[in-house]
Write a protein that binds this DNA or RNA. Structure first.
Length: 406
DNA sequence: TCTGGGGTCCTAGGACCC
DNA sequence: TCTGGGGTCCTAGGACCC
């Protein structure tokens, strides 16, 4: 019998760009460096800014000409805040109106996804050149497997982390924070230890000293709900969580979650770094500027609905997927949400087909209450190329299939 | 002055099949 | 006097993440 080769101790890095959107904006507007700046809002902030800026080069715009948070009115939230703004107790996902109370003088910039995607592509390409085993975790963060990279083990990964940090900064002017640890779970926590522009190295033996004192909420996957339940059970820190028996956690949180929590508290995580993955669904949604009523605002709602379907269809075509589950999402004025979906016999990426079936879904929802959000989703995706290959296989066989059914 | 948009994964019940 | 149990698909909701 062959014995598997001994696997080396894994060294996994988590790299997180510092205040990514805001930092990209500061490249464009260096005159805002050090000031409280937030990114967020919708069309309104954008219009204001464009109206004020005209054709001037970005770096020449006087600080006094930028729109301020206090002048905003609408339903936007903060996407990113500079560290100067975070000092005022404002941060991601906070409503702009609430943030304006805490820091009215903050400068408000609209989101510019095209710019962020460009820098995202750039920093990821730099990483891939140095360490090819990278997992994409969104626009501003990645996991990297250092294990087999030459020099990836030196000082626990610190040397390679520093090299990557410098390469990204030299090419873009952007800083990032890196955590290196035996697995993704610990690396993710470590990357927060020395933010911004920091590196943290965690070894297995650091569990008690560096991880156990942290709040349970620092575990990626324990959110507000699970944290509240843990607190009610008298558990605040990861160390306290680690003292509980696995069976006890499974009784309180279910088999799967309980077992996972137990492992997480003990720093155990065997998930691999995943290089490629297929999307499961593609969706578009929009929050209205004012709540809409299904009857009184029927025309407006219908136009938005159709546009969302067209956008999803475009996204499917651009990314090369077909799907067969069509779904909608509604959010009412009381913020309660419902979803409806249906699965078609055949895959599609056609806007009219999506619109028709999304319309059927909508008919299954009582619409007395006003709506604040409408969304359209296509799931059960299949790459377009596979779908076409499947059709070529299937077509000649179809009559035969019918005969066999008889 | 309430709370964006795009995702993933899990749970749970019912249908349906073996 | 049916009585199980497993597996998969579909649908709805919810937690969580970036």
């Amino acid at each position: 019998m062959n014995t598997p080769p001994p696997s080396p101790q894994r060294r996994i890095a988590h790299l997180d760009m510092d205040a990514f959107y805001a930092s990209v904006e500061l490249l464009r507007y260096p005159q805002l460096k050090g000031l409280p700046v937030v990114i967020g809002g919708g069309r309104r902030a954008q219009d204001d800014q464009q109206a004020q800026q005209g054709e001037r080069p970005p770096h020449k715009i006087p600080v006094a000409d930028f729109p301020l948070l206090k002048d905003y009115s609408g339903r936007g939230v903060i996407t990113t805040a500079t560290y100067a703004a975070r000092q005022f107790g404002i941060g991601s996902a906070m409503g702009l109106m609430k943030a304006a109370k805490r820091c009215p003088q903050a400068i408000l910039l609209p989101v510019d996804f095209a710019a962020y995607r460009h820098y995202s592509r750039t920093f990821k390409d730099i990483i891939l050149d140095i360490a090819p085993l990278m997992e994409d975790r969104g626009i501003d963060e990645v996991y990297i497997d250092f294990t087999q990279v030459p020099g990836g083990q030196r000082e626990g990964g610190r040397v390679l982390a520093r090299l990557i940090q410098k390469a990204i900064f030299d090419a873009t002017g952007l800083t990032c924070s890196v955590g290196v640890a035996p697995n993704k779970l610990l690396a993710k926590m470590a990357s927060e230890f020395n933010k911004p522009n920091g590196i943290a190295i965690v070894f297995e033996e650091d569990l008690q000293s560096k991880i156990w004192p942290l709040a349970c909420r620092k575990i990626n996957g324990i959110g507000p709900k699970a944290d509240e339940k843990l607190q009610q059970l008298g558990i605040t820190t990861i160390g306290e969580l680690a003292q509980k028996e696995q069976g006890w956690l499974m009784d309180h949180f279910g088999q799967k979650t309980g077992a996972w929590m137990f492992d997480a508290a003990h720093g155990v995580d065997s998930r691999p770094v995943v290089l490629e993955s297929e999307p499961v669904s593609i969706s578009r949604e929009t929050t209205f500027e004012r709540d809409l009523h299904a009857v009184r605002d029927k025309a407006e709602l219908g136009a938005i609905f159709t546009r969302l379907c067209e956008q999803v269809a475009q996204d499917l075509a651009r990314k090369g997927y077909v799907g067969k589950t069509i779904g909608i999402k509604l959010r009412f004025d009381d913020f309660k949400s419902v979803t409806r979906d249906l699965t078609l016999p055949d895959y599609t990426l056609d806007a009219a087909t999506i619109r028709h079936h999304a319309g059927l879904c909508l008919k299954r929802v009582p619409l007395q209450q006003r709506l604040r959000l409408l969304g359209v989703r296509v799931g059960s995706l299949l790459p377009l190329a596979e779908h076409q290959a499947g059709l070529r296989q299937e077509a000649p066989r179809a009559p035969l299939q019918t005969t066999m059914d008889l």
